[in-house]
Amino acid sequence: MPEGALSTTEGARRRVLVIDDASLVRIYYRDALERAGYEVHEVLNGIEALEFLLERSADLLVVDVNMPQMDGLTFLRALRRQAMPLASTPALVTSTEADGKDIAAALEAGANYYLVKPVAQEDLAACAELLCGAPA
């Protein structure tokens, strides 16, 4: 089992991995999630996210769609092919694309929920709690 895999043990803060190539989006999400009480980590694309998750687990993934090297939906398909419990990590997709077909594609790839950017900080925190529980 990867180091840190038992992040959901009692007393530990819930760990959120933000996967987005835009630095301003990452610090905005970090600000919202840390103020809500979550432990936040950041990576820039799907490849870095897979590398992170092979070493440490996360209680929630916040995933952008358009990213260099590995986009968010390719990452989610790869994630859902991994062994359990990693494959079942909840994933919130946030994207600028608001068409029904974009949302359907994300859900088909393995997203648990979809928010259209720009995302209000309180909506992000509420979704995080919905998908992985209260911060601690």
Binding site: V65, N66, M67, P68, Q69, M70, D71, G72, L73, T74, K101, D102, A105
Partner: peptide
Amino acid sequence: HDDAGRRA
């Protein structure tokens, strides 16, 4: 393209 992988 509609496909995110192809855009990337």
